[in-house]
């Protein structure tokens, strides 16, 4: 069951990759078990979150690629500012 707000959980997952670029598809698969069934959860909505988190400098978009459906995607890594914000994650995580 999901504990964190979706946007915060996305940041959390990217932080857990410890600098390895994370693909949007990977994130979606990771989040599926926790948030599937909620009206807010869709690939497009998750990408909106990613762009907003990127716009405010918490993550960085790197290594663009085309996925298996021919859609252009970014991979994401956390920034120093983003790492700093993970201090607000609940202690249980």
């Amino acid at each position: 069951m999901a504990v964190l707000p979706l946007r915060f959980r996305i940041l959390h997952l990217i932080n857990q990759a410890e600098g390895r670029p994370v693909k949007a598809n990977e994130l979606y698969k990771e989040l599926y078990d926790e948030y599937a069934g909620e009206g807010q959860f869709s690939f497009e909505f998750m990408e909106d979150h990613l762009m907003s988190i990127k716009a405010v400098g918490l993550i960085e978009a790197v290594e663009p690629y085309f996925d298996e459906f021919g859609e252009a995607r970014y991979q994401y890594v956390i920034t120093e500012t983003g790492k700093d914000r993970t201090k607000y994650l609940p202690k249980i995580l």
Partner: peptide, 17 residues
């Protein structure tokens, strides 16, 4: 309507909330 109701509780439990 946007299916975000559960986000209220989750957000309030965090420091940013």
């Amino acid at each position: 309507r946007a299916g975000k109701f559960k986000e209220y509780g989750r957000s309030l439990r965090t420091k940013p909330g």
